[in-house]
Amino acid sequence: MESRVITITSGKGGVGKTTTTANIGTALALQGKRVAVVDSDIGLRNLDAILGLENRIVYDLVDVVEGQCRLRQALIKDKRLPDLYLLPAAQTRDKNAVNSVQMEQLCQQLRAEFDFVLIDSPAGIEQGFRNAIVGADEIIIVANPEMASVRDADRIIGLVEAAGKPEPRLILNRLRAEMARRGDMMDVADVLEVLGVDLLGIVPEDEMIIVATNKGEPIVFEKRSRAGRAFLHAAQRIMGEEVPLDEVTEVPSLLERLRRLVGFGPALAEKRVRS
């Protein structure tokens, strides 16, 4: 299988890039793909904590790039999934410790080992962002349905296209369907109309994400979580499966809620067992 390098970026900070990278990466690995998630936010290491791997780090991305260690030595194997690996960011280094050429070479090296390489981009539009997209085949933009985030996303879309990359796809994160229905915030359709890109997924606002983050366990493992299922669906779409976009319209029926409570969750439960 051709290896795919996918960068997750946003412009604005704090909209859910790292959460998206961790969860889509985990979901792809749950489906049996060999996945590397790369934290390219040098100086602000985060992805390791969301995956619960923060105390296993020995070497990091900058060490690999500078030749202090081999790529395999720096890759951290996930606790739960045999085919998921993390390449952590350097914590004590400057953002400009790595250049675009080095980053592109690193992507090439990772391609040889993995089906999917997911790169978690830092916020902003400076060198760190450019490094994150330089080796990517595809770009995923994460945005929240609010003005500042969508505006930055638009800016990023322009920069991604100027860099000669294909049109990015959008993960709309932290949607509050009830508020959108009341007209108190922008709706999915509004954001899509304004940005004019394809939708990869809609992730609802979900308190369970905070709990999951605290436990160091990606939300896709939590079968009662709608955000978890949304990330799983996004991963399935990345693999080319047709999954209906029902994340918004779907209001869980009482029966369904009960069912999930007792643990007869749909798709996810089975997939977890199979892996």
């Binding site: 505006r151 638009d154 800016r155 322009g158 007209g183 709706d187 509004d190």
Partner: peptide, 23 residues
């Protein structure tokens, strides 16, 4: 207009200007 509609309209205006500036 609802707050959602207002946000969308303001956003559209801001984007026209942003897009020209960055282009």
């Amino acid at each position: 207009p609802t707050p959602g509609e207002l946000a969308k309209e303001r956003l559209k205006v801001a984007l026209v200007q942003d897009r020209m500036k960055v282009n």
